[in-house]
Simulated assay, not measured.
Amino acid sequence: MSLPRLVATDLDGTLVRSDGSVSDYTREVLVGVERLGVPVVFVTGRPLRWARDVFDHVGDHGLAVVSNGALLWDVAADRARLERAISAEDALAFCRDLRAAVPGTAFAVEDLDGIALEPGFMERHPIPDASRRAPLEELMDRPALKLLARHEELDAQDFWDRAEAATGGRLTITWSSSSALLEVSAAEVTKASTLAMLCADLGVDAADVVAFGDMPNDLPMLGWAGTAYAMADAHPTVTAAADHVAPGHDEDGVATVLAGVFGL
């Protein structure tokens, strides 16, 4: 069996530990893989403002797939290589339909400038002080890289099911949170579809990619990659879809597997 030519890894719950850190061991293994000429690509649901926290660990190629595939970021040049945004018109129509079907839904919008939130959107993480709060129609004055939809009473799976039924698959809905927070991208935008574009540019086939993930937003990527690892503490749907199971993210599971695969 030939060695992988590219490593694609999710961050939270996969590469990053529960305390938000990347261990020294994981860092050393990633550097070792890069020295073999194998790019390590971070493929994350994080928006750019959070993804920057781990960009120091991206190799010399300096590329990351951000916001569930809505953005391909050139880390070295500090600029977007590809944006796959939702038009304001499509976003507003989606939000109207979802709110009508599931009252109590609140929305936020991510773009390159950061996050903007409806007054009723209860964020669980610190947000920049300058973040806008306004009605959705005012927030959607430009294309969005990602919509966030939150419900304070439903569980994540129920909210996802209702959202899919209400909006007819016009946009791509996924989730990676333990709470009822949906992440919405433009049609056909997933971690997998943007990773596939990147790999095509690099001349790497899907069969030559090894991928790691833990939550439903990783499912398209794990299904596309030639070799797929779910983390030991992954969501059950991810474990069922993956070829293999890696040790948990707090046990440096990604690094442990890569060290074995590449003989580091």
Score class of each variant (00 low, 15 high):
D233R: 01
T190K: 00
G248A: 08
F107G: 00
G120Y: 04
A225G: 10
V189F: 09
A77I: 07
T194M: 12
L264T: 07
W224A: 09
S23C: 08
A51F: 12
R132E: 10
T194I: 09
A228T: 10
A100Q: 14
D161R: 15
G120A: 15
L71S: 02
V65I: 15
Y229F: 11
R79I: 06
D141T: 10
L171K: 01
R35N: 14
R96V: 13
L98Q: 04
S176M: 04
T237I: 08
D10S: 13
P236H: 02
A156P: 03
T190V: 08
E89Q: 11
T9W: 01
D243P: 05
P126Q: 05
L6S: 04
A91R: 00
W224N: 06
A106T: 15
S21E: 11
G120V: 08
V40M: 13
A230P: 03
R84N: 00
A149W: 02
R170F: 04
Y25Q: 12
V209P: 01
G62K: 08
R49I: 13
V189G: 00
A230H: 02
A108K: 02
A101G: 03
D56S: 13
S67K: 08
T227V: 13
G69T: 02
D129K: 12
D233N: 15
D19H: 09
L117Y: 09
D113A: 14
D214F: 00
R52A: 14
